[in-house]
Protein backbone atom coordinates (compact mmCIF):
# COMPACT_ATOMS: atom_id res chain seq x y z
CA UNK A 1 0.00 0.00 0.00
CA UNK A 2 2.84 2.34 0.72
CA UNK A 3 3.92 1.98 -2.91
CA UNK A 4 0.99 4.13 -3.93
CA UNK A 5 0.22 7.79 -3.40
CA UNK A 6 -2.89 9.82 -3.93
CA UNK A 7 -5.14 6.86 -3.14
CA UNK A 8 -8.89 7.15 -3.51
CA UNK A 9 -11.36 5.37 -1.22
CA UNK A 10 -14.88 4.16 -1.81
CA UNK A 11 -17.08 2.64 0.91
CA UNK A 12 -20.19 0.51 0.37
CA UNK A 13 -22.31 -0.75 3.22
CA UNK A 14 -23.82 -4.11 2.32
CA UNK A 15 -25.41 -4.90 5.64
CA UNK A 16 -26.16 -8.55 6.30
CA UNK A 17 -26.23 -10.65 3.16
CA UNK A 18 -29.09 -13.09 3.45
CA UNK A 19 -29.67 -13.93 -0.19
CA UNK A 20 -29.20 -17.47 -1.32
CA UNK A 21 -27.18 -18.19 -4.41
CA UNK A 22 -24.21 -15.94 -4.94
CA UNK A 23 -25.21 -12.33 -4.36
CA UNK A 24 -22.86 -9.83 -5.94
CA UNK A 25 -22.15 -6.21 -5.21
CA UNK A 26 -20.83 -3.89 -7.89
CA UNK A 27 -18.42 -1.88 -5.80
CA UNK A 28 -16.38 0.06 -8.34
CA UNK A 29 -16.17 1.11 -11.99
CA UNK A 30 -12.87 2.50 -13.20
CA UNK A 31 -13.46 6.01 -14.53
CA UNK A 32 -10.16 5.84 -16.42
CA UNK A 33 -7.05 3.67 -16.37
CA UNK A 34 -6.51 2.90 -12.72
CA UNK A 35 -4.66 0.68 -10.31
CA UNK A 36 -6.55 -1.28 -7.70
CA UNK A 37 -4.77 -1.01 -4.36
CA UNK A 38 -7.07 -3.43 -2.56
CA UNK A 39 -10.54 -4.39 -1.44
CA UNK A 40 -11.27 -4.85 2.27
CA UNK A 41 -14.22 -6.08 4.28
CA UNK A 42 -15.25 -4.77 7.68
CA UNK A 43 -17.74 -6.42 10.00
CA UNK A 44 -19.38 -5.35 13.23
CA UNK A 45 -18.77 -8.64 15.02
CA UNK A 46 -16.05 -11.23 14.76
CA UNK A 47 -16.62 -13.98 12.21
CA UNK A 48 -14.95 -17.31 12.84
CA UNK A 49 -14.14 -19.46 9.87
CA UNK A 50 -16.16 -22.63 10.04
CA UNK A 51 -17.98 -25.21 8.07
CA UNK A 52 -21.28 -24.05 6.74
CA UNK A 53 -20.04 -20.89 5.19
CA UNK A 54 -18.87 -20.08 1.72
CA UNK A 55 -16.26 -17.76 0.39
CA UNK A 56 -15.98 -14.22 -0.88
CA UNK A 57 -14.60 -13.59 -4.35
CA UNK A 58 -13.50 -10.34 -5.92
CA UNK A 59 -13.82 -10.21 -9.71
CA UNK A 60 -12.90 -7.80 -12.42
CA UNK A 61 -15.83 -8.19 -14.81
CA UNK A 62 -14.20 -6.00 -17.39
CA UNK A 63 -16.26 -3.49 -19.28
CA UNK A 64 -18.49 -6.12 -20.86
CA UNK A 65 -19.63 -8.02 -17.79
CA UNK A 66 -17.68 -11.20 -18.45
CA UNK A 67 -16.80 -13.61 -15.66
CA UNK A 68 -13.43 -11.94 -15.78
CA UNK A 69 -10.37 -12.23 -13.61
CA UNK A 70 -10.44 -13.20 -9.97
CA UNK A 71 -8.72 -10.48 -7.98
CA UNK A 72 -9.20 -11.96 -4.56
CA UNK A 73 -10.81 -14.65 -2.47
CA UNK A 74 -11.07 -15.64 1.14
CA UNK A 75 -12.82 -18.76 2.28
CA UNK A 76 -14.86 -19.36 5.37
CA UNK A 77 -14.98 -23.11 4.99
CA UNK A 78 -12.82 -25.65 6.79
CA UNK A 79 -14.59 -28.59 5.18
CA UNK A 80 -12.35 -31.12 3.49
CA UNK A 81 -9.27 -29.86 5.17
CA UNK A 82 -9.17 -26.77 3.05
CA UNK A 83 -6.41 -24.43 3.96
CA UNK A 84 -7.77 -21.01 4.70
CA UNK A 85 -6.05 -18.57 2.44
CA UNK A 86 -3.63 -16.42 4.26
CA UNK A 87 -3.89 -18.61 7.32
CA UNK A 88 -6.68 -16.53 8.76
CA UNK A 89 -8.98 -18.05 11.33
CA UNK A 90 -11.28 -15.12 11.94
CA UNK A 91 -12.38 -11.77 10.60
CA UNK A 92 -12.13 -9.60 13.67
CA UNK A 93 -14.73 -6.99 14.41
CA UNK A 94 -13.99 -3.42 13.39
CA UNK A 95 -10.67 -4.39 11.77
CA UNK A 96 -10.38 -4.36 7.97
CA UNK A 97 -9.62 -7.72 6.37
CA UNK A 98 -8.17 -7.71 2.89
CA UNK A 99 -10.02 -9.73 0.27
CA UNK A 100 -7.29 -9.28 -2.31
CA UNK A 101 -3.92 -9.53 -0.63
CA UNK A 102 -3.26 -13.12 -1.76
CA UNK A 103 -4.36 -12.78 -5.37
CA UNK A 104 -3.80 -9.26 -6.54
CA UNK A 105 -0.73 -9.18 -8.75
CA UNK A 106 0.52 -6.03 -10.39
CA UNK A 107 -0.95 -7.17 -13.69
CA UNK A 108 -4.35 -7.90 -12.20
CA UNK A 109 -4.34 -4.58 -10.38
CA UNK A 110 -4.13 -2.65 -13.64
CA UNK A 111 -7.65 -1.64 -14.59
CA UNK A 112 -8.85 -0.35 -17.92
CA UNK A 113 -11.41 2.42 -18.10
CA UNK A 114 -14.84 0.90 -17.60
CA UNK A 115 -13.65 -2.19 -15.76
CA UNK A 116 -16.15 -3.11 -13.07
CA UNK A 117 -15.19 -4.70 -9.78
CA UNK A 118 -17.66 -7.08 -8.20
CA UNK A 119 -17.59 -8.68 -4.75
CA UNK A 120 -19.36 -12.03 -4.76
CA UNK A 121 -20.57 -13.81 -1.64
CA UNK A 122 -20.35 -17.31 -3.08
CA UNK A 123 -22.28 -20.24 -1.70
CA UNK A 124 -19.56 -22.77 -2.38
CA UNK A 125 -16.43 -22.98 -0.32
CA UNK A 126 -12.99 -22.88 -1.72
CA UNK A 127 -12.88 -26.68 -1.88
CA UNK A 128 -16.10 -26.98 -3.85
CA UNK A 129 -18.13 -28.32 -0.96
CA UNK A 130 -21.52 -26.74 -0.97
CA UNK A 131 -22.14 -25.17 2.39
CA UNK A 132 -25.05 -23.35 3.86
CA UNK A 133 -25.83 -20.00 2.41
CA UNK A 134 -28.43 -17.52 3.45
CA UNK A 135 -27.39 -17.64 7.05
CA UNK A 136 -25.38 -14.45 6.69
CA UNK A 137 -22.83 -15.89 9.02
CA UNK A 138 -19.99 -13.95 7.51
CA UNK A 139 -21.79 -10.65 7.30
CA UNK A 140 -23.81 -8.50 9.67
CA UNK A 141 -25.68 -5.23 9.74
CA UNK A 142 -22.45 -3.24 9.88
CA UNK A 143 -20.66 -5.05 7.07
CA UNK A 144 -18.96 -2.74 4.58
CA UNK A 145 -16.73 -3.16 1.55
CA UNK A 146 -13.91 -0.70 0.96
CA UNK A 147 -12.21 -0.15 -2.38
CA UNK A 148 -8.85 1.60 -2.58
CA UNK A 149 -7.45 2.70 -5.93
CA UNK A 150 -5.28 5.23 -7.68
CA UNK A 151 -5.66 6.91 -11.02
CA UNK A 152 -3.32 5.58 -13.71
CA UNK A 153 -1.60 2.24 -14.04
CA UNK A 154 1.91 1.11 -13.21
CA UNK A 155 2.87 1.73 -16.79
CA UNK A 156 1.16 5.09 -16.89
CA UNK A 157 0.61 6.74 -13.53
CA UNK A 158 -0.91 10.18 -13.68
Amino acid sequence: MSDHRDIEVSVMNTGAVYSTGAPCFNVFRAPAEATLVGVDILTGTTKAFSTGAGCINVWNRGAAGATGDRLGRISFNYTGGTVIEGGRSTVTEDIPTSLTEHHLTAALADLDAGDTIVVEFADTGIDGVTPINGSANFTDVETALIVKWVLGTAAHED
Binding site: M1, V9, V11, D40, G44, P96, E142, A144, K148
Partner: peptide, 22 residues
Protein backbone atom coordinates in the same frame (compact mmCIF):
# COMPACT_ATOMS: atom_id res chain seq x y z
CA UNK B 1 -14.21 12.75 -0.91
CA UNK B 2 -15.77 9.49 0.19
CA UNK B 3 -19.55 9.01 0.30
CA UNK B 4 -21.18 6.22 2.28
CA UNK B 5 -24.86 5.43 2.06
CA UNK B 6 -26.44 4.68 5.41
CA UNK B 7 -29.98 4.11 4.22
CA UNK B 8 -32.82 4.13 6.72
CA UNK B 9 -31.74 4.31 10.34
CA UNK B 10 -34.41 3.87 12.99
CA UNK B 11 -32.40 2.58 15.92
CA UNK B 12 -28.92 2.83 17.35
CA UNK B 13 -26.55 1.54 14.72
CA UNK B 14 -22.93 1.81 13.61
CA UNK B 15 -21.59 2.30 10.09
CA UNK B 16 -18.05 2.11 8.76
CA UNK B 17 -17.53 5.21 6.67
CA UNK B 18 -13.80 5.43 5.94
CA UNK B 19 -10.54 3.49 6.02
CA UNK B 20 -7.45 5.63 5.62
CA UNK B 21 -5.37 4.36 2.68
CA UNK B 22 -2.48 6.53 3.81
Amino acid sequence: TCVTQLGTVGSDLNFFIFEAPE
